[in-house]
Each structure stands twice: as C-alpha cells, then as structure tokens.
Design a binder for these strands. Structure first.
Length: 467
DNA sequence: TTGGGG
C-alpha cells in the first residue's frame, strides 16, 4: 500500500468523540453537531480565538470543546446556528487537567461547516483554507443529520432568565432575540436584544435639581438609534441594551446577526441611569438557537398573544390596572406602548399609555409656570419599551393640575406622580423613588415643517393628576 | 504562543 493511499484513508476516518478522547496528542478527524459557540476574542498571543462545543452519538450530553486560533476573526468558524455540523480534519486531542479538548492547529487542521437540518444541501457554508471536500463526506453528514432528528442536542439551557426576571448580579443565562448590533466606538459594541417580556421597573436615584444640568438619558447609547431602526423593533416587550464596555477583550460581536435567537451565558446585569443593561464579559459565551427552538417559539407565541390583546400591552408589573394617581378621558381607548408611539407611521397622532414619570424639568413645582403664568413642564416618561420626553403646556397643565393649586398641594401631587416617599425629615430628595404606573394621553406633532420626523414632539393632554 | 471546566 502506498503512503499516499494510507494518508487518504486516514483522512476519511472520523473518530467517535468518545474514541478520540483516548487518542491524546494524536491528529484525528471528527464530525459533530455544534451545541455552543464561544464569543470570539483576541488571544493573549497574536491570534483571535474561539471555542465551540460539539456532540455526537457517542457523547451526546456533555460534548467536547474545540479551540480555534486564527490570524483574524474572518478565519474563525462563523457558525450560523447551534445544531449545525462541523467537520474537523487533522485536529489534535489535548489533555488538560480533568478534561480532554480539541485543538484546531492553523498550520495543518481544516474545517467545514454545514447546515444541520435534515434535507439541506451537502455544500458547506464555510470552509477553512486547507479544507478539501470529498464525496464520501456526505454519508457522515447525512448520518448526523438523521441522528439529530431523533436526538435533538440540548442547546437551550434550562436555567435561563427571562427579561421579566432579571436581577442585578452575576453570571446569568439569557435567551433572547438579537434585534440590532452596532459598534459604538472602536471595539465597543452595543447589542439590542428582546424576548417579548418586560424588564422590571427600577428605583430612580437622581435628585430633582439635577435634571437641568444632568438629565436622565432617554437611552444608553450616545447616538440615539434612527427611526428606521426603531421601526423594525417589536413594540411590546423590553429592548435590552447589552455592552462590552467593561471588558478589555476584543469580542467577535460582529458575528451576532439581527434576527437570530441566542443564548448568552455568563453575562451580568446592571442598572445604569435607571435602565437595565446587560454586560458582556470575556468569559461570556453565546450559542445561536435554531428558529424552531422551543424557548424561542414560546417567546414568540406569548408576544403575539399579548400584542393582539386589547389590554395586555400595559406593563407586566402594572397589575391589575394603573394607579389612580392620574386619570384620563377616553377610558375605552386601549393602551399602547411608548415604542408604539415612537414608531407610529404618522407624525400627528393621539395615544393612551401606561408610563412611569421618572423625572420632571423643572425639578420643583414652584417653577412649573413660565413668567407669563402658563404651565410649561417637561416630563421624562418610561415604560418597559422606551423613554420619551413629553411636555405639558398651558391649558393641558390647567387640566393636569386641576387649576392652579397652592404650592403645598402641587408638591404633594408631584411627589405622588414621581413616587417620592412622604417623609418628614425634608430629605425626601435624597431617597430613591419608585414612580407608580400611571395612565396618560399623549399627542404627537412636529414643530418644523422642513424636518417633520426630526422635530417630532409629544404633549400630554386630557390627563389629570389626581394625586 | 494563545485557551480550555465548574
């Protein structure tokens, strides 16, 4: 038998994972189903690296990690979905403390990635530079696809959080849909993710007199998203911002394509300016879930039911109904979310919403009237979907405050609206506040005919602050 | 070389 022939034979031989694990320091060929994709990052050396996890029939539950190194992100595997199939040629089995893992050596290893779905084509959607496909590969790919139909690799973790249950703290798992990805600064990314549920409201810590110089932001990104981008977002359920700003590593977040369902592992949640923020760490991992993942289907179905229902657009924690702190006319008009308001296709429109008032400008009721004596106040409103500024002017203010009450009455009303605890020690401005859910009527209009959408404003009308 | 598991 010639050397050429025997090399050729070796290249066709795929080891079962369990057998490969006994071949430490040897070059082997593997074929497996991808269950987890680590975030790509810059290695401590000169390369980019990422880790994926694969399973096969011999090792269906725990799987084995494969470590890739490459000169740039483009050369790393770009896995489209967990459940896809990867063929690994001449990779090295490595023993490490308690476990065994696989090293993809860029000098002699190669890979090819195929769709995992049964019936899809046998052409890989990504191949590494040294990969040579052979006709007989098909048999192995078809075999694995068939196996995954009966044995769906467990991709979605059972301990994952829903946005409605997030808490400040460490190392959570979140299953969500990626809505938008943008690089805000060099190497600093912001992800916009969603699962159809409402993140819980949080206490507001700013002082009233800070609002002029240091207003509560409407969003965490320094450049607000364009209306075009917002219009593609679902209008029910929190859009969570996620950032890697605390992380020194260069993460391969460009791999996260909008529209994908993803499971993030080892992420933190923080509150910034009263807004929830997901924090990616260098040890964070993500795995793409197939579109028909059970958890993803459940989220979509729950969202659809909620979006279609007459009253379920109000926030989850607004139960059973908004507080009686405010009252509105038009009681029969269903509530919409602030994302509905922001993405409404016409400039001039009227809405009824359930919101929290997180700040007012001016900060003190004594300044709510302009020198001419009419009301003019800017409120910062939020619901689980967005924050907006809404103004109260003139006769809408008379309706809102029920005329021109005494300053003491105004302070009481203001405190009730902003969720300030009534305490005697005059330090109420120091305490965090928890604004109640209140209903309000909003109208939108533009103030510049030459820039209709850019000059859109929101006003409160037909709303009374009962207190 | 680099990273890898809980």
């Amino acid at each position: 038998m010639s050397n050429l022939k025997s090399d050729d034979d070796d290249d066709y031989k795929f080891l079962r994972i369990i057998d490969a694990m006994a071949s430490i320091n040897q070059k082997v060929n593997l074929i497996g189903v991808i269950t987890e994709i680590g975030i790509s990052k810059q290695s401590r050396g000169t390369d980019c690296c990422c880790t994926i996890k694969i399973v096969d029939e011999s090792n269906a539950s725990s799987g084995i990690s494969v470590n890739f190194f490459a000169e740039n992100f483009e050369k790393l595997p770009h896995v489209e979905s967990a459940g896809d199939i990867i063929q690994l040629v001449r990779v090295v089995m490595k023993s490490h403390r308690s476990g065994v893992n696989v090293l993809f050596d860029k000098k002699f290893s190669s890979f090819a990635i195929y769709e995992g779905r049964e019936g899809s084509k046998f052409t890989p959607y990504q191949v590494s530079s040294k990969f040579h496909g052979r006709d007989r590969d098909k048999k192995f790919i078809a075999g694995l696809r068939k196996w995954t139909v009966s044995h769906r690799p467990e991709t979605a973790s059972s301990d994952s959080l829903s946005l409605k249950d997030i808490k400040q703290g460490n190392q959570s798992t979140l299953i969500c849909k990626v809505l938008h990805v943008c690089e805000v600064k060099d190497g600093e990314w912001m992800l916009f993710v969603w699962d159809g549920t409402d993140a819980p409201p949080v206490n507001i810590h700013t002082k009233f007199d800070e609002e002029f110089d240091n207003p509560l932001p409407l969003q965490l990104e320094s450049i607000p998203l364009s209306r075009n981008v917002l219009c593609k977002f679902p209008t029910v359920g929190t859009v969570l911002r996620m950032t890697n700003s605390n992380c020194n590593e260069k993460l391969g977040l460009h791999l996260l394509k909008p529209g994908k369902w993803v499971q993030f592992k080892n992420i933190n949640f923080e509150v910034r300016y009263g807004l929830w923020c997901g924090i990616l760490l260098s040890k964070s991992k993500f795995s793409f879930l197939p579109d028909d993942d059970d958890h993803a289907i459940h989220c979509r179905r729950t969202y659809e039911e909620r979006a279609e229902s007459k009253w379920d657009r109000k926030p989850f924690t607004c139960l059973p109904w908004p507080s009686k702190v405010t009252d509105t006319d038009h009681q029969d008009v269903p509530f919409v979310t602030l994302m509905d308001v922001l993405t409404y296709p016409e400039v001039i429109a009227k809405f009824r919403c359930v919101v929290r008032v997180v700040a007012t400008l001016p900060g003190h009721p004594r300044d709510f009237k302009a020198p001419c004596g009419t009301y003019r106040i800017r409120l910062t409103l939020e619901d689980p979907t967005a924050r907006i500024h809404a103004y109260i002017y003139a006769e809408d203010g008379v309706k809102f405050f029920e005329g021109y009450p005494s300053i003491d009455t105004m302070i009481k009303k203001h405190n009730a609206l902003l969720g300030v605890e009534e305490i005697d020690d005059a330090d109420s401005d120091e305490k965090p506040r928890n604004p109640p859910w209140v209903e309000c009527c909003l109208c939108s209009y533009n103030i510049d005919e030459t820039d209709v959408w850019g000059s859109i404003r929101y006003r409160i009308f037909d709303t009374t602050l009962v207190g």
